[in-house]
């Protein structure tokens, strides 16, 4: 290696000259978005959904927020009114897919292995495996994680963040990227409000601070409180009245 400039070039000469290293190194302009590949797959998914009139919704939350239970109650309330399919994302196991399958709707489990989020490429493959009906709703239950999934567009119509009252009302400030990306925040497990110190108004104020346009619903999958307005929101999205 050249001991003068460390350029990796084997040569025997003195270094009184001022070379510009053009003999070895090259600068190559790239100018590419690093998430560009994911974006291309997301655009393909979005075009597929639009062509087939499918409303895809990306459900995101921490682990244990009650996403799957809420989804099961939602499917039970809605499945007579529109066709529903589900993609379940977890690092491991098909436990959630088995629970969803009991409702009778088509479901596909994606195990991300080491990855902490779903990406548009995996969703594209899942769309090939799940024969989705036209004019249907597709729920994509992302890996439980309030950080990473926020960055990966899947081609969905809307991102929905679910926050349960046992997690604390300050989560929108602690994980602002997730709440900034979501069109709707669902405050879940509201039947537990009497037992925890969760200030609903404060939580909504925090969420609107990072995202003034975020819509808010409150639900309990156990008592069914708020399930009807949530179903109305979904049917409105299904009827393409909700722009995101």
């Amino acid at each position: 290696m050249c001991g003068y400039c460390g350029c990796g070039h084997d040569h025997e000469h003195t270094h009184e000259h001022e070379h510009d290293h053009a003999h070895d190194s090259r600068i190559i302009q790239i100018e590419q978005d690093i998430l560009g590949e994911n974006q291309r797959f997301a655009d393909q998914n979005r075009a597929y959904f639009a062509k087939n009139h499918i409303v895809a919704l990306n459900l995101m939350s921490s682990p244990g927020s009650g996403k799957t239970t809420l989804l099961i109650e939602t499917i039970r309330a809605l499945k007579q009114r529109c066709a529903i399919s589900v993609i379940e994302g977890d690092q491991q196991t098909d436990l959630d897919a088995k629970r969803i399958a009991e409702t009778g709707v088509p479901v596909l489990q994606i195990n991300t292995g080491k990855a902490c989020h779903l990406d548009a490429h995996r969703i594209g493959h899942a769309l090939g495996d799940l024969a989705l009906s036209n004019n249907s709703v597709l729920f994509i239950e992302n890996v439980g994680n309030l950080v990473c999934p926020a960055l990966f567009d899947l081609g969905e119509k809307a991102k929905i963040v679910i926050l349960s009252v046992t997690e604390g009302d300050d989560k929108p400030l602690k994980y602002p990227h997730m709440f900034a990306e979501a069109s709707l925040m669902i405050i879940n497990k509201i039947d537990l409000l009497p037992y925890v110190s969760f200030n609903v108004e404060q939580c909504i104020e925090y969420a609107k601070r990072v995202n003034p346009h975020i819509a808010v619903l409150q639900t309990s999958a156990t008592t069914h409180q708020g399930i009807a307005p949530w179903c109305d929101w979904l049917l409105e999205a299904h009827n393409k009245k909700i722009t995101t």
Binding site: S25, I27, I30, E31, D33, I34, L35
Partner: peptide, 11 residues
């Protein structure tokens, strides 16, 4: 919100 690779120096 940008996240991109601008250029690289190669041998």
């Amino acid at each position: 919100k940008v996240f991109r690779v601008i250029r690289m120096e190669t041998i």
